[in-house]
C-alpha cells in the first residue's frame, strides 16, 4: 500500500508539472536559436527538393505531422488560414515518418513541428505544438522583409 501511494503521489505531481509546462510552452514560435530541445539550425536552408514542394514566394510554413497526432489537424487549419490571409506564403505539410532523414537532420522530436522559412528557404522560426493564428502572422511579419 505505501509503495503504491508513493508512486501515486510522484506520478500525479510529475504529470501535473509536465502538463502545465506543455500547456504554457506548446505552440510558441521561437527564433531557431532559442528552442531549448533543438540544436541550432539557424541559417540552414531548405530547398524545394528537401520539402517536396516549391517554396513560397515570400515565406513557407513547413509542418511535420504524423498519423497519431491530434493537434496536427488544428495546426493544419491554422496554417491554411494564414496562407489564405498573407499573400506569397505557402503551407507544406510533411509526413514525418515518410521523411525520417529530414526529421533527423532537423532534430524534429515530436509533432506538430512547424518551421517558418523565408523566401530563400532559410529556417527562421520554429514552433513545437499547434501555434495560434496571431503568432504565425507575427512570425511571418518578422520573416518577410
Amino acid at each position: 500500500m505505501s509503495t503504491g501511494l508513493g508512486i501515486l503521489v510522484v506520478v500525479l505531481i510529475a504529470a501535473t508539472a509536465f502538463g502545465l509546462y506543455r500547456r504554457f510552452t506548446d505552440g510558441h514560435i521561437k527564433g531557431v536559436d532559442s528552442v531549448p530541445d533543438a540544436p541550432t539550425h539557424d541559417g540552414e536552408v531548405l530547398s524545394a527538393a528537401d520539402i517536396g514542394a516549391p517554396l513560397g514566394e515570400r515565406a513557407t510554413l513547413v509542418q511535420f505531422s504524423t498519423a497519431f497526432c491530434q493537434p496536427c489537424r488544428a495546426a493544419r487549419r491554422t496554417l491554411g488560414e494564414v496562407t489564405g490571409m498573407v499573400e506569397g506564403v505557402t503551407h507544406v505539410e510533411i509526413d514525418a515518418e515518410a521523411h525520417l532523414d529530414l526529421v533527423r537532420r532537423l532534430d524534429v522530436m515530436r509533432t506538430p513541428t512547424i518551421l517558418v522559412l523565408d523566401s530563400t528557404g532559410r529556417i527562421r522560426r520554429r514552433a513545437v505544438g499547434a501555434p495560434r493564428t496571431a503568432d504565425v502572422v507575427a512570425a511571418l511579419g518578422d520573416v518577410i522583409d
Partner: peptide, 28 residues
C-alpha cells in the same frame, strides 16, 4: 501501472497527445 497512470492522467486533465510525443521518437 504508474507509467500508464501518468499517460491517462495527462490525457484526462490536459488532453495530452501521447502519439505526438512518442510515435515519431519510436520511428526514429
Amino acid at each position: 501501472i504508474g507509467l500508464a497512470l501518468a499517460a491517462a492522467f495527462l490525457n484526462a486533465a490536459f488532453n495530452f497527445c501521447l502519439g505526438c510525443e512518442i510515435y515519431l521518437v519510436a520511428r526514429r
